[in-house]
């Protein structure tokens, strides 16, 4: 009963919305708002394996490369900056400024500096999404528990053990928060960089469909982009639950007292 109820609650609204879209758009004659059935048919026709290999995989590869670059760079820099008061004071206003620049406007600049190749896109994705990771790591490292720091000092736990078990693990909830924000930004920058300068990729393909008035294909591209966003977010949440099990457990425990 409860399982049934929960399933109904979880699926009820999405099913209803899709159904409404289906019925409302059925037999649509509006060139720009095709019927959902047309869009779905176009989806199957458009996103064939060849197309996936030509456009989707390059996009995802650039996204992964840029994001991983930002993740490693942001965490490494964040630990360095967060661990030292003076470095932090020195860099804080600068980082606040760099973070505030809307990442997509850097696309033209990066094109000037390093051309229109994959390297540019990877760099611009990394540069665009590194800030939330970096700033959250700084905050996380800075906000580590003093008693835990003292514990490390008295038991003479230093070097790699301290880096991993004190600094990084303390900061990990914040790092994850930053990484989540960064993933959303990385996806945006990926699409934008491909819309502005590319000859393949999802952003490029979708804009081509729009310019060529292949409207159902364009809609299917929008759907695919949305789907990728959703899958990435879900994948992220799965990874987060695994990595931060201790964190949620501790918080749930505290609430009970």
């Amino acid at each position: 009963m409860t399982l049934l109820r929960r399933t109904l609650l979880a699926l009820g609204l999405p099913v209803l919305l899709v159904a409404v879209w289906w019925w409302a758009s059925a037999g649509s004659t509006d060139f720009y708002r095709p019927a959902l059935s047309t869009i779905l048919a176009a989806f199957a026709d458009t996103w064939t394996w060849d197309r996936v290999r030509a456009d989707v995989l390059p996009s995802l590869a650039r996204l992964a490369a840029g994001y991983l670059l930002a993740l490693t760079g942001g965490v490494a820099l964040g630990v360095l900056i967060g661990g030292n008061r003076h470095v932090r004071a020195f860099l804080e206003p600068l980082l606040e400024f760099l973070r505030a620049i809307p990442p997509p406007v850097l696309v033209p600049v990066f094109i000037l500096l390093s051309g229109v190749g994959d390297r540019t896109k990877v760099l611009v994705i990394a540069f665009g999404c590194v800030w939330p990771i970096l700033l959250n790591t700084v905050e996380g490292v800075r906000g580590r528990d003093e008693v835990l720091s003292d514990t490390c000092r008295t038991y003479r736990i230093g070097g790699g053990l301290r880096l991993w078990h004190l600094l990084l693990r303390s900061a990990s909830p914040r790092i994850v928060t930053g990484a989540r924000q960064a993933l959303a930004i990385a996806l945006i920058v990926m699409v934008i960089s491909e819309m502005i300068a590319a000859d393949n990729g999802l952003g490029f393909a979708v804009l081509q469909f729009q310019r060529g008035f292949q409207i159902p294909a364009m809609w299917s591209g929008v759907l695919l982009l949305g789907l990728i966003g959703v899958l990435l977010a879900w994948g992220f949440r799965w990874a987060e639950r695994r990595m931060l099990g201790w964190y949620y457990g501790q918080r749930a425990g505290r609430r009970e007292w």
Partner: peptide, 17 residues
């Protein structure tokens, strides 16, 4: 070396992870 401390804040002196 050779000195250990037990802190009052047990909840904060153990590594929760």
């Amino acid at each position: 070396a050779g000195l250990a401390v037990v802190f009052q804040e047990y909840g904060r002196s153990l590594f929760p992870w």
